[in-house]
């Protein structure tokens, strides 16, 4: 896989720096994001608080006061941090593939749980069954987590399923499976949301009592498996 090394680096306010590898949803770029996320996590720059990987970018949040303590007086924490991050990026030039897990997620696509399945199918000139068939026909990469605790952004759905998000968010039940653009995702908890809801999983995506609370991690793959209403109720 081609290893993309061009990036733009810019401040996100006075306490964070973003490294952007291109404003696109692309598996190769996301692999690099995850590789650098691991490099920078395992070999941290002093003063870094945490690192947030996204589709095609990596954001380093840092404590400017902690950084200022360790650098020559008069030097800016921002300049020092930016240089340190760029040094790390050059230090780890080789591609480094993170092995994610493949996680099967049962989904009930019954209309009871799928308020938007019918209208989505109709707008695409398909039957609901065809939409479901396309949705389960491939596995999806977890590009990133965000929005809500444990909310995974999965991509990419078949072109025939891609639909812009709703103009107004509505209340969405926990476990709901949605589609927005070429993304698909699962709402871990009840929330307002603008994605088209086509099913629901009985699986808990986020459990705050667990040491490892999120079922899905960036870099994992997800395979949806269709289950009946009866199977959902007895899950």
């Amino acid at each position: 896989m081609k290893y993309k090394t061009d990036y733009r680096i810019f401040p996100l306010g006075d306490s964070a720096i973003t490294v952007d590898f291109g404003n696109i949803i692309d598996e190769a770029i996301n692999l690099n994001v995850m590789a650098w996320f691991h490099h920078l996590t395992n070999d941290p720059v002093e003063g870094v608080i945490e690192i947030v990987p996204a589709y095609s970018s990596l954001t380093v949040h840092y404590d400017m006061l902690a950084v200022a303590k360790n650098i020559p007086k008069g030097q800016q924490a921002y300049t020092w941090m930016r240089e340190s991050i760029e040094k790390r990026l050059q230090q780890y030039p080789a591609a480094y593939q993170i092995e994610g897990s493949l996680i099967k997620i049962p989904v009930c696509y019954d209309t009871f749980f799928a308020p938007d399945l019918g209208t989505l199918a109709e707008s695409k000139g398909m039957s609901s069954e065809e939409v479901v068939q396309l949705h389960v026909s491939r596995s999806y990469r977890v590009y990133m987590l965000g929005f809500l605790p444990g909310f995974a952004y999965l991509g990419q759905v078949d072109d025939k399923l891609a639909t812009p998000r709703k103009s107004q968010p509505v209340e969405v039940a926990a476990g709901s499976i949605g589609i927005a653009g070429q993304q698909t995702g699962i709402y871990p908890m009840v929330s307002p949301g603008g994605w088209h809801i086509i099913g629901r999983t009985p699986v808990h995506l986020f459990d705050s009592d667990k040491a490892d609370p999120a079922l899905l991690k960036p870099g994992d793959s997800v395979q949806f498996v269709s289950i009946t209403l009866h199977e959902f109720e007895n899950y």
Binding site: L12, G13, S15, V52, A54
Partner: peptide, 13 residues
């Protein structure tokens, strides 16, 4: 009019 894909934001953004 270029749409941005999601990335990190911060307190104060």
């Amino acid at each position: 009019k270029e749409e941005l894909i999601s990335s990190a934001v911060s307190f104060g953004t």
